[in-house]
């Protein structure tokens, strides 16, 4: 079993701020506007936020890997 793991690829980041807005416990936005990953291994209670952040990221910079509980609709 691979624990869920987040990635924030700053080279692909376009600075829309969606991750820091929708999942502020997991992501921040630095002064240059780029995504900063705060918690690479999101706890189970933060997985829906992590999934939402990955779905909303417009540039594909945010990804969620690992074995995930069955996906539910992208809502909060």
């Amino acid at each position: 079993m691979n624990a869920p793991r987040l990635r924030a690829d700053r080279a692909r980041c376009t600075g829309a701020g969606q991750c820091a807005r929708t999942a502020p416990t997991l992501f921040d936005q630095d002064d240059d506007g780029l995504a900063v990953l705060l918690i690479p291994n999101p706890p189970v209670e933060a997985l829906s936020q992590a999934r939402l952040a990955a779905d909303l990221c417009p540039s594909g910079a945010i990804a969620l890997h690992g074995d995930l509980p069955r996906a539910r609709p992208i809502t909060e």
Partner: peptide, 20 residues
């Protein structure tokens, strides 16, 4: 409405810079 994934600000690298 529960769904959050609208594209009113576009999508991709050009997504609205002033959306917030």
């Amino acid at each position: 409405r529960p769904e959050r994934h609208h594209v009113a600000f576009g999508y991709g690298v050009h997504q609205c810079i002033g959306q917030n």
